[in-house]
Structures are given as C-alpha cells and as structure tokens.
Design a binder for these strands. Sequence first.
DNA 1: TGAGGGCATAAGCTGGGGTTATGAGCAGGA
DNA 2: TCCTGCTCATAACCCCAGCTTATGCCCTCA
Lengths: 332, 332
Amino acid sequence: MSRSAGNGAESGSGGGSVGGVGATQGARDDRGRSLTGSLAHRVPDLGAMELLLAVARLGSLGGAARELGITQPAASSRIRSMERQLGVALVDRSPRGSRLTDAGALVTDWARRIVEAAEAFDAGAQALRDRRDSRLRVAASMTIAEYLLPGWLVALRAQLPDTAVSLLAGNSAAVAERLLADDADLGFVEGVSVPTGLDSAVIGHDRLIVVTAPGHPWARRRHPLAAAELAATPLILREEGSGTRQVLDAALGGLARPLIELSSTTAVKAAAVGGAGPSVLSELAVGEELTTRRLVRVPVADVVLARDLRAVWPTGHRPTGPARRLLSLTRA
Amino acid sequence: MSRSAGNGAESGSGGGSVGGVGATQGARDDRGRSLTGSLAHRVPDLGAMELLLAVARLGSLGGAARELGITQPAASSRIRSMERQLGVALVDRSPRGSRLTDAGALVTDWARRIVEAAEAFDAGAQALRDRRDSRLRVAASMTIAEYLLPGWLVALRAQLPDTAVSLLAGNSAAVAERLLADDADLGFVEGVSVPTGLDSAVIGHDRLIVVTAPGHPWARRRHPLAAAELAATPLILREEGSGTRQVLDAALGGLARPLIELSSTTAVKAAAVGGAGPSVLSELAVGEELTTRRLVRVPVADVVLARDLRAVWPTGHRPTGPARRLLSLTRA
DNA sequence: TGAGGGCATAAGCTGGGGTTATGAGCAGGA
DNA sequence: TCCTGCTCATAACCCCAGCTTATGCCCTCA
C-alpha cells in the first residue's frame, strides 16, 4: 500500500469505509454479539485508544508515540492495525502530520468514553490497593463507591496527584465503625439517619425512580403514578434488607410487592430492560439506560423516594487536608 | 502459593489488599498518571474484564472460560494476573466454585462500565463499517452520533441481531442530502428548523446549559442567572458557526462574548473543568462531569437554550421495518 | 466408592506489539 | 539551490503474554 493510497480525501461527511476486510461474519449469538471473538477481539485495546486520542490531540503519529513512550513505527503500525480491525480509515497521514478522518473523529469520541471509564477504574483500583500506608482513607457505602467515588477520585488526583487514597466499601454500619476506630478519615453513606458519633454534611440526593422498558404501558402514561398504584403493583426489586428496598418500603409503608427479587442492581436493571416489568432503582444506576431509552422513567405523584447522600466524619474531627479537598469536590 | 493462601476470608466489608506487589512508584506526571506505563499498563484489558464479568455471573472460572471459548487454565491464569496487576484479591477460589471478593464486586462494577462503553464503541464501529450493502442506513448529526446513537444501536442489536446498520455522520444539510438521494433510510438532526423535503418527529431535547468549575463564584449563586448577565460575560465557547454557538447566539440575540474559542466540545469541557471560566454546553456532553461535580450547572432565568432533537425522513416515506424499530427506541 | 465438577501446575507454541535501522516526501531558511 | 528538520513508511528481528494440552488434587453427591 503506497503512501496515501485509497483513503486520503474521504470527503466531507461520513464514515470512511476502507476497502476489503470482508469480515461480515453473520454468526451472532442471541444478543447480537459476533460469535467469532468476543468484544475484546472486535474492539481495539486501551493502548490503541490512548494512542488514537494522543494522535487526535497532537496531530502527529510521532508526537503521540513520543508522549506514550513508544517509537514512531510502533505507533504507526498500531494505528494501522486498528484501522484494519475496524475496517475504517481513521487518520489521514501526510508528510506534514496526521489529521483525523471524519469517521476517525467519531471513533475517537467513542474511544474517549472507554478511556474515561478506564481512568475511573484505575482511580478506584488504586484506592483499593492503597489500603494501609496511605494518606487519605475513605470509607463508602456501596452505591456511592460504585457510581460516584471513581469520578471524584479522578478529579482529586488532578488536584493532589501525590496523595494516595485508600478506599473501603461497606454498609453504613461498617463505615461508621471504621471512622470511629480511626481506620478511615472520611466516610460516605446514603440513607436517612446518620450513625451516632458522626457529624455529616449532605452532598447530594439519591432519588429512587420508577422505571420500565419503553414498551410497558406505564411508559406512555400521561399522569403521574399514585403511591397506592405503585404499592399495588408487583415490582422487580432488590432483595429484602437492601438499602433501596428499605427506602421503598418506608416510603410506601412496608407494602412493596415483589414480582421478582434479585440480589444485584445489575440483575434488576437487566430484568427491567428485558421488559419483565416495572422496577424501582436509584437514578444513579440508570442514567445511561435513561438517556438511551432502554429504560423510561415513570413519574410518581405522592411518594418521596429520595434519600440523602452524606459525607460523614467522627464528631469533632472536621475533615482537613486531603479529606477536606475531596469533600469540596462532592459538595453542592 | 498454595490453594487458598492469604486471601480467603477478607472479612465482611472492604477492599481486600493482597500482600506484596510493592509497586508504589511515586513518579507521576502533572495529571497524576503514573509515568511508568500509561493507563493500558495499569488497567486490565477488555478480555480480562469480560472474563471477570462472566465469572461473576456464572460463579465458576471453568464456566466462564467455556463461555468465552477458552480453556479453564487460561481463565484461571488470566484472573490471577489481573489480581497481581491490581494488587487486590478479586475472586475467592474454592473447590466448589468461585465467588467474588467484596473488592472483586466493586471492581466488577467498574469494569462493567468499561465493557458497556466498549459495546457502544463496537456498535458504532460496526455501523461505520457497514456502509454499503446494509439493511438500515442511518445518517446523523455529530452530537447525536456521538452521544446517543451508540446506545440506541446496542439496544437495537438486542432486538434485531441480524440487521446490519450503517452510520453516516455529518451536519444537517448532509443528512438531508443523503436522505433525499436515498442514501439513507433514517436521519437524526438537532436544531430548530427541519430541512425542506423531510418529515420529522421530535425525539428529545438537547438543552444547552451553563456550567462552571465548582470553584467559580457562579457555582454558589442562589438566584438564576439573567440573560443579560450571561450575554455580558465572556464564555468558553465552540467556534463561531458551530451548532451550539448558533443556538446560543440566537437565544441571546447574537451577543455571546467568547472568552476562548475552541474547536471541539472536548476541548471546551477541559477548559471549563480546568476553571478557565463559565461555558455553555449541551447537557448530553456534560452528564458525567455533572454527576461527579467536576462541573456545576448554573441555573439560567429567562433564556431558552433548548433545541429539538428530531428523527427525519423523506416526506412521504414513513419509516418502516428496522428504521421504524430504531425510531421507536428513541421516541418519547 | 466412584463419577463429575471445580481448581492448580507444568511445558511448549504462537503472534501481536515492540525495537533498531533506514529511506523518502515536503517545508522553510541560508 | 541545497541543507536541515519535521513527517511518515518499510524491513528484519525479538520478546513475552496468553493460549494450548496434559495431568493431578480436592471436594461433593448419588
């Protein structure tokens, strides 16, 4: 393949489809995944994505290579193999630098999503690893640890790159225990009551919302759902004793009727998306599903399904230093 | 290392820190990234994440291996090397199966985020690749292609696994052109006006919102911002001619004053997060930043910064088949 | 007590991604 | 005009991560 063969211009608008490739393997499983090679075989790896982002930012393969600490030929071949894998020209190589194709710009944006999720993963994993011998020890309840903390940690790391943050996840009681035993500097809990011995600040709200698949009759309701109606309808729920279940029971007066009981938020989401019925979930857990309309929010009239998200610390020990900084990142 | 050495119990709540590892390399760059090895070296690859999810779901290494089409030793060693890399015990291996550690459960949830982003990437890439010779040809404007379409495609693929979807991204005019030339079956545009020759249905709204870094004075305002105040303040903006800029100018009467002009949404976000000043951005673009409070939304009083998101098709040619199905996934 | 499912260990192969070394297109200044 | 410096490409070689097959131990259950 000679210098600027084939791709080059790729005109003003669309997805550049590079020739050949021919891999239109029709075999798919029941979820539409190709059977030959799972995701990892069809999606470039993180290194390639980082490289692509660097190329996009710097406008040069060699520059990107330098930034990532590899050589220019390595970068070039990596990008090329990514293009081969995707069957789409991503960068327009010229002797004066490399610019993204239109398709490349789109792919880069999607790649950025993945890299951001990976950064959150990394920040969380780092915190998990930093257990002892660390400077800022955070204890958090599951929902917060799952959905919010990784993002905060990414932000915190931008401000305090040298602070090792350690994370410990558990229920409210465990968080309180750790704080009081001075095993943690700052805690995060969700729920109405604050464990005794702790001071707290509200940092946000976790609303439970009623959701259904778009096909469900409730998705087309024009008027909000009444509490009684909600209480009378069997719902896809977390198991009894779970945090969200407690809040729901309290709001309805202990009446929530389970259609199915599942032991993880993910399983509940999957069931709801699959159309098994309406469910009640934390809005933190279903943001993505709502924007892509895999789930639809059903407005509710006379029930308050909100619980506070709070930062907590031992009474008297106002957060200072890194803890204070983290707190300020989270606060409304 | 013998059978159940070391990790095992790890009691009821937290992040299990496996011994050793010792890789607390202090060297970090200005963003807190470790210099030795970029993200890709600190984060397990997609294959490992998929494997972990499978183990979580099936409760067995061998079962997960079977599902992914690899052998049991391969799965075992892969998980083990992931644990070594993260410095945390993830699964509790027993002769009767494998369950996740508490830390493992957390890590699995974070991993799921990455895998979901990768699925969206894959769906988009597949559509980009399927240019010609496909059954459903979609043309979409950039914002929609970037933030919404991948999710819809994932959902559509669940319903119609065998339909090849092709995607073409461009501005409104390009979308219209493709539809009228019968180069596309369904289009998506944002903006107030519908190109002539096309019918449309509103499928959502893209609100532009005013955001700042949490440290900015506006972040602590108690009262909404007046339009005049917004118009009088220099803002971080996309370049003149961009879609969001047009809407903003229209809403303010052509008065928006740029503090900095940048040519990509990502660059604008980065500047705003960095505290360079207030900005106006699509709410689709800043969802993540808002929930993690890297950016804060500033309420605005008397300006309507909404534009419709519309599905469009050639007048008369009501969407049918897969196009209709996709439309129903997006519709309110 | 055997059958079967679970996991571990060991030895060997393969290929993707890295490296060095070299050359060629294009711009801008002496 | 030619040199210098940036860009990218190609070629030959190397290494190790991750896979495989083969085998064995642990535990449970009929």
